[in-house]
């Protein structure tokens, strides 16, 4: 059984120029993407700002309605789930752990919500379940009476993870799970996620701009650029031997120890206009390997959900 399946998913936002000008523009955010998340696996989605990865994440948990395409959760269409039923299947761990907690509620109140509303547990069940999950994620019992502002970023992120686990959902969408944390703490949280995945048989989709984080935690990785998945491969291979020119550029740009400046591409880095997307490959203007074919022809999309997949006429 697949944990999650996205088929030809697209999202366009419509915007008007002004109150009197009825010139409707369609802003493209996610463009016809397909992928599968197998059970007990982690799929990483990487991309830079503006590539549509957050829009994608919010569609997968039902916070946003896709413009077209289908999402199946555990082989059942997302539209067939009630709100509470959906919450028991899929949960979202927010990028900014502090702003996802109500500032005027104690941690106990925030953590009790999924147990109360998704599972209708009574008070003693709530307390029991909560304490067991809190010890799993490394939180102390005395935290329960505190308010969000009293926590460091690392602790707040653990609270966010605990809340998702308490919903007892088997699929977690993690949006930039460690980007708010210091490097010396990041892998503490990543290791915790890996342990939890094994213990509770979870499936993850991890969304991040940080290649190293995604490589570390994922089984498969999809690279997004301007709303498209441009490359999809196993995490062992994708950054070791990139096939799409954009993946190559990303890998080359990551600052690592002892890298020289000469290696880095310094051409312009602006994205195309999302209200007026290019007719051919969206990476055309930045690409070192482009040909005339790339300018006007649509690059392939991964409807068949194969891996490895690369959306390029001249793969490396």
């Amino acid at each position: 059984m697949n944990a999650l399946e996205a088929i030809n998913l697209s999202k366009t936002y419509s915007a008007t120029d002004g109150f009197f000008i009825k010139n409707k523009k369609n802003i493209r955010a996610v463009n016809d993407i397909s992928f599968t998340l197998k059970e007990n696996q982690t799929l990483g989605i990487v991309g830079e700002s503006g590539c549509g990865k957050s829009t994608l994440a919010r569609m997968l948990v039902g916070l946003l309605e896709p413009t077209s395409g289908t999402i199946n959760l555990q082989d059942k269409n997302i539209n067939q789930y009630q709100r509470q039923e959906l919450g028991r299947v899929i949960q979202y761990v927010f990028q900014d752990p502090l702003s996802s907690l109500n500032p005027r509620k104690t941690i106990y109140q925030s953590l009790a919500a999924p147990l109360k509303y998704l599972h209708q547990h009574d008070h003693t069940q709530i307390k029991e379940k909560m304490l067991s999950i809190m010890s799993e994620v490394g939180l102390k019992e005395e935290f329960l009476d505190r308010y969000p502002h009293e926590f460091s970023g690392g602790q707040a992120q653990r609270i966010g993870i605990a809340r998702a686990l308490l919903a007892d959902a088997k699929i977690l969408i993690l949006d930039e799970p460690v980007s708010a944390l210091d490097v010396s703490i990041q892998s503490q949280v990543l290791n915790l996620l890996n342990d939890l995945k094994r213990k509770f048989h979870l499936s993850f989709i991890v969304i991040s701009h940080d290649l190293a984080v995604v490589e570390n935690i994922s089984d498969e990785i999809a690279v997004m650029y301007f709303g498209d998945i441009v490359e999809h491969n196993s995490s062992q291979k994708i950054f070791q031997s990139p096939h799409h020119p954009y993946t190559e550029l990303l890998v080359g740009s990551v600052p690592t120890l002892n890298k020289q400046f000469a290696d880095i591409q310094t051409k312009h880095t602006e994205l195309p206009d999302p209200a007026n997307p290019p007719s051919g490959c969206s990476f055309y203007s930045r690409c070192n390997y482009r040909s005339d074919k790339c300018q006007n022809n649509k690059t392939p999309i991964n409807s068949a959900q194969k891996t490895p997949f690369v959306s390029c006429f001249h793969p490396l």
């Binding site: 490097v183 010396s184 990041q186 290649l211 490589e215 570390n216």
Partner: peptide
Amino acid sequence: CVPQLGNKEHALYSI
């Protein structure tokens, strides 16, 4: 703690 890309076996390190 500095990550190394393209080397999945190199686990992320934390203090």
